[in-house]
Amino acid sequence: MTNDGLDPLIHAPARLRVMVTLAALGEHDTLSFTRLQDMLDLTAGNLITHLRRLEDAGYLRTEKSGNGSASLTSVMLTHRGRAALQAYKATLRDLMSGL
């Protein structure tokens, strides 16, 4: 089976799990970096790399609050990210139905 039409930014295990996990929250909800890391069982460096790629594509937004050791990084899926995930799922469904 080919991966034609599947968004390559989402079509990678870690990034797919990031997107699906964030999509489980409501719109305008944020998730802390540490909780996301804990849920996905990824190293901080690995997660940062994937988040940066998704953020560069406009699929998610990161926000920092507080200073120093009390700083908190939160992540949220953007409308564009939600739409991209829906499109990815639709393409996946088409690929699967073609089997």
Partner: peptide, 14 residues
């Protein structure tokens, strides 16, 4: 976890 190494069936399951 390699880009593009994901089979669509595995992606759906994931």
């Amino acid at each position: 976890d390699d880009d593009g190494a994901l089979d669509p069936r595995t992606a759906a399951q994931m």
